[in-house]
Amino acid sequence: MADLRVNFCGVELKNPITTASGTFGFGHEYGEFFDLSLLGGVGVKGLTPTERLGNPAPRIAETPAGILNCVGLQNPGIDRFIEEQIPFLRQYDTAIIANVSGNTVEEYEGMVEKISDADVDLIEMNISCPNVKCGGMAFGTRPDMVEEVVSAAKKKAKKPLIVKLSPNVTDITEIARAAEAAGADALSLINTLLGMRINIETRKPILSNIMGGLSGPAVFPVAVRMVYQVRKAVSVPILGMGGIRTGKDIVEMLLAGADAVAMGTVMFADPMAPVKALRELEDWMDAHGVKSVSELSGAVEV
């Protein structure tokens, strides 16, 4: 039997499969379909300093092999997450990955400081949300701003700090290096790709926010490419995500350079996808004589 355990910035995950922030709520809903303890970690809905209502509907448009969304970080705020959701998630034997956002450097500092004192295992700092006006992607697309916001947040972090990168940049390695130089303990990539659909009958954009983030199998090759490029550019661990559907996709993402992965949009098609992928990954590793996940990370032969 293959050893699926992964040590991700000092946190032991029982397997490399986590859930992508924004696709999993706080775990209650998918917890009706499978035992959350099967997961290596749970990435929760992006949190902000106070409650955010999000954007009006429509917030979703289907695309070939994907979806566009413009939810706009609807969440109850960090305090209610700490009070109401952490106790729920702690019933399960899985790592909690808290995802935090802010509008200003100060807000990011405050968020990271507050969540550090809460009972979570990893902090994922979102500097790449395409659906909010301030902050979000605005921070994640310029190396100087990445360095500023990450180094400020890192000073407040008492838990490993993962920085989530935007693919909507000319050179993701430049951003990855800036985050690493500023003290990021790990990187997660990719967030969604900015996209747009138009209703040709009404000539209006389908999404209320005009543009939205593309996710799902359509973006998988882009994610693999970016993880591969970032792996060569930095030495911190990588949480690879973007369009993963199956155990074989996980193997591919690991080979590209990921140390662990997150699954998201595929669960909208099949709530059991992470559990099925876990079995597939295990079977594939056994069939190929691969003893541990770390043997696969970055093992692509070029």
């Binding site: 924004g22 709520g25 809903e29 509907a57 979703i60 909208f268 709530p271």
Partner: peptide, 17 residues
């Protein structure tokens, strides 16, 4: 009715004001 994603309350896309 609204355009829907996960259908179970996790993805938050089918917003109703």
């Amino acid at each position: 009715e609204e355009r829907m994603g996960c259908g179970i309350g996790a993805c938050l896309v089918c917003a109703c004001a």
